[in-house]
Design a protein around this nucleic acid. Structure first.
Lengths: 337, 337
DNA sequence: ATGAAAGCGCTAACAT
DNA sequence: ATGTTAGCGCTTTCAT
């Protein structure tokens, strides 16, 4: 069942059928109707592969994330899928499982698949450099959230410096003075930027960091729980009065550790996260956190991709779009003083 | 940069280059080496679109889920992505947002994209029938988790009858006698099957259901919280001593409602979920639930798809694979009596 | 073992 | 406004 079959059955040329079905050029109304009826009757479907080969465009975009199981990336993928669908494109989803090799392999496959563009959140700030820059040389590519510092690609993400500033100002205004920071190992850009933002904010606001107050593990509930354990099981004067977390998973772990020890949140210790994942609203106490504008991030990323797709802007200067986070005040920090 | 370019540069025919790079037929060792070197030097990439057109195979599988934001489907998609990658295929992800129209549109696009197969969890037991059966007539298709009852497709999912049986036996053994069931509206197959399983189990074990003890809303934390509110804010003798939930989101909402009211779990009320989403381990008390074997489900689904792909089994009798859930005992039900 | 050439199904340039 | 035809890049007969 091909265009040619429809053309023959309708007694017209393949070009006419193509024009009718794609609407690419005007066709006499009665012929158009006739073609459409015939196509319908035969159950003609169209072949996106043949079209893609001819048009050099697949209407597919590849997305590579470190872990779809991380609720933040789930939300991001959801936003991207929605935005893509609005423009008639589809999403090829790849999970790098935090493995640079697997990530590189996925990128290679996406290039072979000739996707129209690639959105990637590189799992490792250094180990991902090669694959990302090689790929960017072949296909429009935009980095989202995490990035590697190679000059030649656009990036959309959170303004991490400002993010930590907002959190620390909030905590400071609510009476916090001796803080701790629970984060992941410094293998990705978000982590690095957030640590810098934390240190800048501490200095600026005249806060102090408790001894061994910066704990590095990975983005998971369990490691948040461990980290908080270490911060809470010590003499009162070395305990923090606020624990800032680099993401919500860690913060939820911290809340669990507090609950376990009967440490009152927010009265004894205030706790904050980043991302505003769905579950941050459902823990007790509900988590104060910084929401990432995932819908806007997705939209901007795809806009940049589309821009690079047209030859003109192919080697325009690259853009870094740092979006503003918004504080979601809930119950794990104190009310207005 | 095409095969022809490589062929010319290496001084051989395109056929030879193709044979070398795909390994489809033996080629003299020195020529092979020469071809590979040339391809490397030129940075030749290969064009999956052209290959797909010629081979009538895209190495892509479409996946359509009701909502990627539901952690159960996230886990399922993750499992599918992993299993696909192991077989060199990629995943085209579509979210129907619980909308049968959107779902139908996604299915149509996947057919046009000529994916090798489709895995779908239909969002509506009746409204999805048309699109699913039409699609199944054109492409190998397997239903996963939810299904519509059309004869012509394979299905892989949980043994829902048995699932509720296991839960109720567990609760009964732990002293529960007057139970309630919190579930979603009867618009999808899982829901229908689970309700039947619940009613069968109640009868078999001689349990009683409290008045208005079956609450229908949707699969969300908020609706679980509402439902539990209605069950708990009543005279003691009309309260359930166990609340069975049709998924973990509902159960987490129920736990919140209990916490809010100071109702002790599991001492006053026992609570169970289904799915074993990641967060069920991180609520307080940790949730007793029924784990779905998502990895196995994904694997079986893809196996069935591959089977249908070969012409032979194209119209073999359809298969329904009901997998056995496993109980994960945590803190929201009582210990061994 | 290698090459020549057909053709997968479509669109777009060109001709009428 | 419509038809004819080349060709997107690859794999796979078929012939040698």
């Amino acid at each position: 069942m091909t265009l040619a079959d429809v053309a023959q059955a309708a007694g017209v040329s393949t070009a006419t059928v193509s024009r009718v079905l794609s609407g690419s050029r005007p066709v006499r109304a009665d012929i158009a109707r006739q073609v459409r009826t015939t196509a319908d009757r035969l159950g003609y479907r169209g072949n996106g592969i043949a079209r893609a080969l001819r048009q050099q465009r697949t209407d597919a975009v590849g997305v590579v994330v470190p872990s779809i199981l991380n609720p933040f990336f789930t939300a991001l993928v959801d936003s991207i899928e929605g935005a893509l669908h609005d423009t008639g494109k589809q999403l090829v989803l790849c999970d790098s499982r935090q493995d640079p090799e697997l990530e590189a392999q996925h990128l290679r496959l996406l290039v072979e698949r000739h996707v129209d563009g690639i959105v990637v959140s590189p799992c490792d700030a250094t180990a991902s450099i090669d694959a990302v820059s090689r790929t960017a040389a072949l296909v429009p590519l935009v980095q989202l959230d995490r990035r590697v510092d190679v000059a030649e690609t656009d990036w959309v993400g959170l303004d991490d410096d400002r993010a930590l500033g907002i959190v620390l100002e909030h905590l400071h205004a609510r009476g916090a003075r001796r803080v701790a920071f629970v984060t992941s190992r410094m293998t990705n850009s978000s982590t690095v930027d957030r640590l810098r933002g934390f240190e800048d904010g501490v200095r600026r606001l005249g806060l102090s960091v408790v001894p061994d107050g910066i704990v590095l593990d990975d983005f998971s509930v369990d490691s948040g729980e461990r980290a908080a354990g270490a911060l809470l099981d010590r003499e009162t004067d070395r305990r923090p009065d606020a624990i800032v977390c680099a993401d919500d998973l860690l913060a939820i772990g911290v809340l669990r550790a507090c609950h376990e020890r009967g440490v009152a949140v927010p009265d004894e210790v205030q706790v904050t996260g980043i991302d505003d994942i769905v579950f941050s609203r459902y823990v007790s106490p509900r988590l104060t956190t910084l929401a990432q504008p995932t819908a806007q991030m997705a939209e901007e990323a795809l806009r940049l991709l589309a821009q690079r797709a047209v030859g003109a802007a192919r080697d325009a200067p690259t853009i870094r779009l740092a979006l503003r986070p918004s504080l979601v005040e809930r119950e794990s920090t104190r009310g207005q003083a």
